[in-house]
Computed example of a mutant assay.
Amino acid sequence: MVPEGFPIDIRRTAMSPDPASLPAPIPPLDAAQLVSALYREHDVRLELVGVAPGGEVGAAFVRWPDGRDGVLTRAGDGSGESEASLRATAEVLELARTHGVPAPRYDLIAAVDGAHVVVQERLPGALPEAVDALLVDRMVAATQVWSGLLAGRTELEPPSLYLTDSGPGFCLHESLSRYDARTRGLLGQVREIGRGIGELTGEDLVHLDFHPGNVLVDATGTITGIVDWDGWGRGDRWFALEVLAFNLSRLRADPLVRRRLDELITASVAPERLLAYRAHLGLRQVDWAIRHHGPAEVDFWLGTAADRLTT
């Protein structure tokens, strides 16, 4: 499945470049500063309860004066998210909720310090303690509700896979082009694949970062919430399940569970489209590892990308 002309072994370990030559990482959430700014600029009073577990940039638990619990996040930081796009997210999630998708309600969207603060409903449940066959089956089943959910919504632009140009704050080509010969080799593959397919297509609601860290479950393992919908789009729900498959490799999930999910995906997605999905995720993960995690993570995701682009 890999295009010809890229002989570099992207699994081979190499020295990393000077960090100053790479694109800057996204700064972590400063929840206390945002809570203070919301009060100062918008007279919105929130109590900071604690830091939410998981996540790369971060989220915080807050409480409204009437006792409602919420989750505070920051949008912006180069992602290109405007107030209009955030309100579109809120509207689409409200539609999804009416169809039974356990997505949070958006209670506040406010401009603060050059970005936007979002306070969402805090859903019940906790992060899953185990990533097993039952959880994966339930996550696959959860996406079935997304099928055709955005049929007729042609005003919604299909998400780009950013295979030929950098994304807004993620999927940065510059990171791979500056890091080493292995990442430049992967970038060449990604760009070649992008000449054929460049965006998602379809009428499904798609969570673009669908993995166990964005799922909440109750004591029985039933999914009670799917969170972090900042990245969503109108397209193919199987893309979300390929995101999950990539993540299962990082979690070192049971090989039988991983194989079963891969079989479902390959039976449902055309090979050339699946290759584009995998190219996007290889680009996404390697770029993020370069800017936020360091050589060991870069090596891991290069290996994962190589494996998935050749199967």
Rank of each mutant, 00 (worst) to 15 (best):
284 R>Y: 01
101 V>F: 12
281 L>C: 09
240 A>L: 00
164 T>Y: 05
236 D>I: 00
136 V>W: 12
216 L>M: 15
92 V>C: 02
306 A>I: 00
126 A>R: 12
163 L>E: 09
235 G>K: 08
112 V>R: 09
271 P>R: 09
252 R>D: 12
155 E>C: 03
181 A>W: 01
279 A>Q: 07
220 T>Y: 03
71 V>A: 09
2 V>D: 14
81 E>S: 14
162 Y>D: 05
180 D>M: 07
47 E>K: 13
106 Y>G: 00
46 L>V: 10
246 F>T: 06
53 P>T: 05
293 H>P: 00
143 T>V: 07
32 A>F: 03
93 L>Q: 13
300 F>K: 06
276 A>F: 00
106 Y>E: 00
256 L>V: 12
170 F>S: 14
287 D>N: 04
297 E>F: 10
43 D>N: 12
12 R>Q: 15
198 G>C: 05
309 L>S: 05
114 G>N: 04
250 R>D: 09
245 A>N: 13
244 L>P: 07
57 V>T: 13
257 V>K: 04
6 F>L: 02
286 V>R: 01
232 W>N: 12
115 A>V: 04
118 V>Q: 11
200 L>Y: 06
95 L>W: 08
258 R>F: 05
149 L>H: 04
71 V>G: 04
299 D>S: 09
277 Y>G: 05
76 G>H: 02
267 A>Q: 01
195 R>S: 08
114 G>D: 07
124 P>F: 13
294 G>K: 08
201 T>A: 11
65 P>K: 06
105 R>P: 01
115 A>M: 04
283 L>G: 00
204 D>G: 13
229 W>L: 01
128 P>Y: 08
219 A>P: 11
225 G>W: 07
20 A>R: 08
224 T>S: 15
138 R>V: 07
196 G>S: 15
195 R>Q: 14
5 G>H: 02
39 Y>Q: 13
122 R>Y: 03
152 G>A: 01
91 E>F: 13
271 P>F: 03
